[in-house]
């Protein structure tokens, strides 16, 4: 419960008029890319003229104080890039997922606890950045993993303990970041993502990896595999000291397959949570 007065009643005239000026200028010269970064905007309803810019292809609203994303934002049907990074957003309207040309959506550094039902129906989304929110496997929308046009999915700094096996449906995924979640396990289906070139699993509570990961092309000089800061079984930890490509070699070995299946049937209790997330800015209400 907040005892502060509602800040949006006192318009920050200096910055607000700047936002309006940007929009007027864009209209005049028909600029398809709108930068409204760090303009002190707390509600998009204060700049209604924004919703008339039907021709714009990029809208960058990073570093404002937006709490509510109006459903009418989906009227900007030519948007290809929508950047809402570092705002105070707790909820997204499902209308966004009908934007027919939206390729890049950035809602990182916000306060999302859930995603709306139907969030997965973006027709052409390629990069989805949900880094630094409060999401977990239970709050993902049911159709989240039908976004098979995705080539990059950033879910770092969230609260996932498990990654749903449907991740294997995202056949075009090249980048997956699960950095600093609470992952206890990753599914075998991850091994189906044959185009994956970047996998960030550092800072979780992982002990073993499915042997299928060993078949991914993550050892080339254009690939990234981040595994540090987990609770790996000693043979994985030893290989990791030599480098991620050694881990992949080891995952492919027969010895490891035996170790993995023993581990999975014994189901030892997962390591305790070690990250203190209470200080995350995404928790502020």
């Amino acid at each position: 419960m907040s005892h502060h007065p509602t800040v949006s009643c006192i318009p920050n005239t200096g910055k607000m008029s700047k936002a309006k000026k940007v929009i007027e200028e864009a209209k005049e010269i028909n600029n398809p890319e709108i930068d409204l970064v760090d303009k002190g905007i707390s509600s998009l309803d204060e700049i209604p003229s924004l919703f008339t810019l039907e021709n714009i292809t990029r809208l960058s609203l990073s570093h404002n104080k937006i709490q509510v994303v109006p459903a009418a934002l989906a009227n900007l049907v030519n948007l290809e890039i929508l950047n809402l990074a570092n705002n105070h957003i707790q909820e997204l309207p499902v209308s966004l997922s009908s934007l027919p040309k939206l390729r890049i959506l950035n809602v990182s550094l916000n306060r999302l606890y859930t995603l709306p039902r139907g969030f997965g129906s973006f027709p052409v989304l390629e990069i989805l950045d949900l880094t630094y929110n409060n999401l977990n496997e239970k709050t993902l929308s049911g159709n989240f993993f039908i976004m098979d046009s995705l080539r990059a999915l950033y879910l770092g700094d969230n609260d996932f303990e498990f990654l749903p096996p449907e991740i294997g449906n995202l056949k075009n995924l090249q980048i997956l970041s699960m950095r600093e979640n609470d992952l206890i396990e990753v599914p075998r289906e991850l091994g189906q993502l044959s185009r994956l070139r970047e996998l960030h699993l550092q800072g979780n509570r992982l002990v073993v990896l499915p042997p299928e990961i060993g078949s991914l092309d993550l050892a080339s000089n254009k690939s990234v595999l981040r595994l540090e800061g987990n609770f790996w079984v000693p043979p994985i930890e030893d290989q990791l000291k030599l480098g991620p490509s050694h881990v992949l070699d080891y995952l492919r070995s027969e010895t490891y397959k035996v170790l993995y299946s023993r581990h999975m049937s014994a189901k030892p209790p997962p390591p305790a949570q070690t990250l203190d997330k209470s200080k995350k800015a995404s928790r502020a209400a």
Binding site: D38, H63, N86, L109, T131, Y154, E198, V224, K280
Partner: peptide, 14 residues
């Protein structure tokens, strides 16, 4: 996360 963030953004990170 293997992407570039400008100095202004980095300074605005929590």
């Amino acid at each position: 996360d293997e992407r570039p963030a400008c100095r202004r953004c980095y300074e605005k990170f929590p």
